[in-house]
Design a protein around this nucleic acid. Structure first.
Lengths: 231, 231
DNA sequence: CGCGGCTTTGATGTTCATCAAGTAAAGTGG
DNA sequence: CCACTTTACTTGATGAACATCAAAGCCGCG
């Protein structure tokens, strides 16, 4: 046990539990030499639609949105997601280029691992492969079911859904700073900006939420739930 | 080379190229003993939402739809897909139970492989694992991008999209028997049944398609493309 | 302090769902 | 095989939901 100390920070990375749990110390060390951490300011693009994929990226801290741009220039937001849930794009193995863009909604730290290294690891370590497939499947399932959930609701149901999503999934708090513009919410739920704003104003008028600039306070969580379910 | 003849039909299965390409003869033989083929009549359920997942299923022939039922009882069609594209549900590894239902739109043959066998194979054969992950990713990507494509269109654009989907992706022919009801199209594109019918009648009136009972003939493919893009 | 982007609200019009009533087609049972 | 029942399809009329347009207020930033 008197071997030279391993200075690799990956050993203690919280992300190990997510997909790198079945790796021995040597592999973790290799991983460490094949990765790079990068900081992104709020608003910066993490990767562009069409860009070549050559790293496996995951979010260590912050908040990101996954989106694409339609031929007419409008933005379609696919999902908004927190650390550990965002494992690169879904298509690292199936596509050579990113199908969607990812941008930082808050200051974020992304860890980028050489893709060939990941692929090699995937080939020779079944446990790792299984963990990664499971994680990727879960992310995809979540996106699909979220999309279906939204699709079945009307305008106010969708807005309520988004408020609840931030409250319960993203911030786990009834008070939070909205990390997106009204327009981004609109692009997320497929409604017009004006109507998103109108609905939020209605919620405010009815005492369901309070708005202080960018800060939102959910006052009546139950009523939001009812609206989201019924809408 | 005088070993006993292997009667395994899997050796020549077309599906080998899809995910079972990296397997040696012995493994293929094992696979053969762990699989079962099943025939489903048009309309039959292949698997139910909520049912326990214990086989890896793929479509050998026929046509299926993937869907779920909302709390209010309406059906949401997630995708309609042909052989080799449908590899069980997406969630065989991430979930214990099916999240969605699958039913046969045409008479179909499904091959069902013991899930534990697949998992074991996945763990010890990197090439197989890679092929499977790639396939699953592609299916997921397709579902997500299709959903986004539909979402950005209006009523007539969506109906045109569906007609083109059957013409170009499913049947590769301008004349085909519509395998779904008007209501199922409506559930697929998220519009009302009456309006789907109305739009198809409009297309017929304008000479874009012809309708003989269940049979559809696409007369003006280009006009459909224009409507689909613009709508 | 002035400019540009985001937000807000009202007024107007379009798109689409819903309802209703009728027809065609496809099962079902005698 | 025919009468009956049910399910799918069709069309028109109406109203609700939502987009769009426009004008004004707000806020942050150079």
């Amino acid at each position: 046990m008197s071997e030279k100390k391993n200075p690799c920070v990956c050993t203690n990375c919280d992300f190990r539990d997510v997909v790198f749990s079945h790796l021995d110390e040597k592999t973790i060390n290799d991983l460490c030499n094949n990765k790079e951490e990068q900081f992104f300011h709020k608003g910066e693009i993490i990767n562009h639609e069409g860009e070549k994929i050559n790293t496996f990226k995951y979010l260590k801290s912050g908040l990101v949105k996954l989106f694409r741009r339609t031929s007419t220039g409008e933005e379609q937001v696919i999902t908004i997601t927190r650390p550990f849930e965002f494992v690169s794009n879904m298509s690292i193995f199936s596509e050579e280029r990113y199908q969607y863009s990812v941008s930082a909604l808050e200051d974020s730290v992304v860890c980028m691992v050489n893709l060939d290294f990941i692929k090699e690891l995937f080939m020779k370590n079944g446990g790792f492969a299984m963990g990664l497939l499971t994680k990727i499947s879960m992310i995809n399932d979540k996106i699909i079911s979220q999309t279906l959930d939204i699709r079945q609701k009307n305008l106010i149901g969708r807005v309520a859904y988004v408020m609840l999503y931030f409250t319960k999934e993203i911030y786990k708090s009834r008070v939070f700073d909205l990390p997106v513009s009204r327009k981004e919410i609109a692009d997320y739920i497929g409604m017009s900006t004006a109507n998103v704003i109108r609905t939020m104003s209605d919620f405010k008028r009815e005492g369901i939420i309070r708005i202080y600039g960018k800060t939102i306070e959910v006052v009546d969580l139950e009523k939001l739930e009812v609206i989201s379910k019924r809408g």
